[in-house]
Nucleic acid binder design. Sequence first.
DNA 1: ATCAATAATAGGATTTATTATTAATTGATA
DNA 2: TATCAATTAATAATAAATCCTATTATTGAT
Lengths: 135, 135
Amino acid sequence: MKRHSHQRDIILEEVRRGKTHPSAQEVFDRVRPRLPKISLGTVYRNLEQLAAHGVIRKLELPGQQRRFDGDTSEHYHIRCLACGQVDDIPGPLLVQIRQLPDTLNNYTILGHRLELIGICPRCRETAGPNPSNGQ
Amino acid sequence: MKRHSHQRDIILEEVRRGKTHPSAQEVFDRVRPRLPKISLGTVYRNLEQLAAHGVIRKLELPGQQRRFDGDTSEHYHIRCLACGQVDDIPGPLLVQIRQLPDTLNNYTILGHRLELIGICPRCRETAGPNPSNGQ
DNA sequence: ATCAATAATAGGATTTATTATTAATTGATA
DNA sequence: TATCAATTAATAATAAATCCTATTATTGAT
């Protein structure tokens, strides 16, 4: 990020809009109405750059495509097993994880990833995956 | 798994051999000397089937390809940020996670995924990723 | 032991998410 | 405003996983 770009500004605005956790393709779809000539590669590159600089967070979800989060505060996520929707879990990190030793199994510990798995209210009510939820 | 297959037996043997956490491709490579005509699709199908029946465990790792674990007891994993190697962390699940409520954020909670991120001893010593470690 | 039904396989094509390449454009700076 | 590296658009390439179809193997019934 050695200089500004209009594309990056718009991408950041769209990632920050709402509390969703969009994939690169979803960001692309949201940006396109404003920048019809933008390409998907530009979206990927800028999302990675913004995440590398801590402006947004990258969520690498097991078995799913990568998502991005405009909220950089420390928080966990819960993910719907049926539709893939990702929501925030407010509150502090687990105390037990905070208290882990510096080394374990001879590894130097740098961090952790935790996500809860569940069924979102919409999928529970409709008794099936709700495609409009995201996946 | 309505019928037995020789291929599945060999695949299971190879996943259980050692304490590694092989990817489908790695299982394929290990099985090939014994079954030269096996195809990658067969390996994927049988690994998924074995996991669905609880015979092995599927590890869906953020930002990495899927791996499989012949050890089905409850345990967490630690993963080397440099080389991708995955090791077991012995011991029980975190008490705090055990005590989570049934619902959170209006989701029905079904489970969780936790993995620790670190640097493995080999990568620490060689001051760089060790390609022979797996990734 | 043989046979018919059908589950499972081999081999290859396809899909999806992501990354790399390249020529043209743009933003920061002298 | 001329320069030059950073950034872009467009597209090709890659990697992991899935799908497709003709063939083979396993099973329960004879």
